[in-house]
Design a binder for these strands. Structure first.
Length: 570
RNA sequence: GCCCCCGUAGCUCAGUGGACAGAGCGAGGCCGUCCUAAGGCCUGCGUCGGCGGUUCGAGUCCGUCCGGGGGCGCCA
């Protein structure tokens, strides 16, 4: 393998095509087929997958883009590019591009050489673990902090927390696949007034009194009360001592609930690297430091006894209070302390996954980062759309305080983690959606996730059958991809890295579910048309087994990227 | 009133400015000696919310209007 071929092996087929089009453009200019103008040298090369297979594996719109600056008709440019590419191919017998054709109204349609596809399929099986991971992104190598869920530990997670949990986890996974280092972080507050109220509610249940009006009424309060440690269960004399007891009971309950939250998330396949407590940001001086930074930069002022941040200097519609007139810092003060605390840990980029109801706080956070001399573009907020939960068409109230919520654990038990993951992964993070629990339960058995998983199980079955028959996959599929149905399936398998690259760049996962469905469809069609295990055709069987095994790896890796299992049997 | 998100098939949703707009579900029909029928094939399904604009080209970008949702606190 030459150095050039080795380099190609690490590129996606799309990147190879991109380079080939660039080379063809340079040659066309060098030979005088196209005029040498600034636009010819600076134009961005784009290749994309045509909607119709007969238009080739990839197409470039370069001729259409150059038509105006070069004052030439698009087909003439496309023809010049096709000619240049044919000349280059004549010099490089190993070219990955088998043909380049000009097509109206000015596309350059490219088709890959069978050998190039075959090399990719062999590589999938040589390095299955790395298949689908990419490193060619602009953002590759950066260290990202993704903070999500961040519900306060005053009650179990509800279905309302599901969106953030899945969106954040899926985002982290797709960024990792794109070559970025990711830290998953959970931010919570176990020292606010709500914790005292939680404690008072537990004491009330324990002592047979009515739960206070601003207390918590969920079943979990009643469940926790009997387990309250003895020293907290004993009433104390004096209002102040009782107040301290409520706080202590709240902290105890809060810790128990936090452990429950961690377990719920683990059941979803969501784990966190760092749990940060709001209180620690104050205790460790981060809030103080952030406020000092803003003051030094001249963005703080006093009014009505409070300290304000001049957010309007950065385009916000109003200034924001940082320190209340009673001397207590606001939640916003904690937020900006948290920003500098996060950057102090060496992150290049911060991503917050927040519900849409927090959109009003985005501008002030990013403005404050800028005011403190940080790079505003390194502080990013992803807002998740609203999930409206219904049961048999009726809206469900979701009050944690009133205890009328549906626990995330219950929903999961009904739907299953794989179906729930697919459901959220296949939709954009910011779209609103209605989820009817009863409908979702009924539809969970028809969830498209099973379609993809079934394809994987079918392949596993074929591979088992092969072992029983004494057949083994070939080391290489070389020479077998010229014909159908192999050609079509192999091309879908080969696309995974491009899908991952696009998904990581867009910070989305819908493309991956779409891909998994397409790959499963391509496999099912292949299964219909091609007998894989056939003792009378041992050589062909071996190559088909190799292709089918590569399909299995691609499918399993796409599912793994979404945290979804790939069963051996269904 | 101001700000943000959304509006694509009966339903749920995909759709990096490109070649006649796609999947799943739902509806109707067909496929069984054969590696898993949780499968395959066929049929029907659309003013891409409306109207302007930019562009060689707009579901995609801009403006405006109409729907739906959310936010506008010295709460978190």
């Amino acid at each position: 393998m030459t150095a050039d071929q080795a380099r190609r092996a690490t590129l996606t087929l799309r990147a190879t095509a991109h380079d080939a089009v660039r080379a063809a453009l340079d040659r066309a200019v060098d030979t005088g087929a196209l005029p040498d103008m600034p636009e010819t040298r600076s134009v961005a090369i784009e290749v994309s997958r045509p909607a119709k297979p007969e238009h080739g594996d990839l197409a470039s719109n370069l001729a259409l883009k150059l038509a105006r600056p070069l004052r030439m008709a698009p087909p003439a440019i496309a023809t010049a590019l096709a000619t240049a590419m044919a000349e280059l191919r004549g010099e490089d017998r190993g070219s990955a591009i088998a043909s380049a054709e000009a097509a109206s109204p000015g596309f350059l349609n490219l088709r890959f050489a069978d050998a190039a596809i075959e090399a990719v399929i062999d590589r999938v099986r040589d390095e299955p673990a790395g298949w689908g991971r990419v490193g060619g992104l602009e953002a590759a190598g950066r260290h990202v902090n993704v903070e999500f869920v961040s519900a306060n530990p005053t009650g179990p997670l509800t279905v309302g927390n599901a969106r953030g949990a899945f969106v954040g986890d899926l985002l982290a996974r797709v960024l990792e696949a794109g070559g970025q280092r990711v830290t998953r972080e959970y931010y919570f507050n176990d020292s606010g007034t709500q914790v005292r109220n939680l404690g008072a509610s537990i004491l009330a249940v324990r002592e047979g009194r009515d739960i206070p009006e601003d207390g918590y009424h969920g079943d979990y309060v009643a469940d926790l009360a009997p387990e309250l440690p003895k020293e907290l269960a004993t009433p104390r004399s004096g209002d102040e001592a009782e107040e301290q007891r409520a706080w202590a009971a709240g902290r105890w309950a809060s810790d128990r609930i936090r452990q429950g939250i961690e377990a719920s998330l683990a059941a979803l396949g969501v784990r966190f690297d760092v749990w940060t407590n709001e209180g620690s940001l104050h205790a460790d001086g981060w809030v103080e430091r952030a406020v000092a930074k803003l003051r030094e930069a001249g963005y703080l002022y006093e009014q009505d006894g409070a300290t304000w941040f001049r957010s309007t200097a950065f385009g916000d519609d109003k200034d924001r209070v940082v320190i209340r007139s009673n001397g207590a810092p606001t939640y916003f003060a904690s937020d900006i302390g948290y920003v500098i605390e996060k950057f102090s840990r060496g992150f290049d980029h911060l991503i917050y996954v927040w519900g849409a109801d927090h959109h009003g706080t985005v501008a002030r956070l990013r403005n404050a980062a800028e005011a403190m001399g940080l790079d505003k573009s390194a502080v990013e907020v992803i807002l998740t759309g609203w999930v409206h939960f219904l049961r048999n068409g009726e809206e469900l109230s979701m009050s944690k305080r009133a205890g009328t919520f549906i626990a995330l654990d219950d929903l999961l038990a009904e739907l299953g983690a794989d179906a729930a993951r697919w459901y959220f992964a296949s939709r954009g993070a910011n779209v609103n959606m209605d989820v009817d629990i009863e409908l979702a339960k009924r539809q969970s058995s028809e969830n498209p996730v099973y379609y993809a998983q079934y394809a994987h199980a079918r392949i596993a079955s074929i591979l088992r059958k092969a072992v029983d028959t004494g057949l083994a996959p070939a080391t290489s599929v070389a020479g077998s991809l010229a014909a159908e149905p192999e050609a079509t399936l192999a091309r879908v398998v080969a696309r995974l890295p491009e899908v991952v690259e696009d998904s990581a760049a867009a910070q989305e996962t819908q493309g991956i579910t779409t891909y998994a469905t397409e790959l499963a469809t391509a496999f099912h069609a292949f299964y219909r048309d091609a007998r894989v295990v056939d003792p009378d055709e041992r050589d062909r069987s071996a190559k088909r087994l190799a292709l089918v095994d590569a399909t299995r790896i691609s499918l399993a890796n796409a599912l793994a990227l979404l945290g979804i299992s790939a069963p051996e049997a269904m």
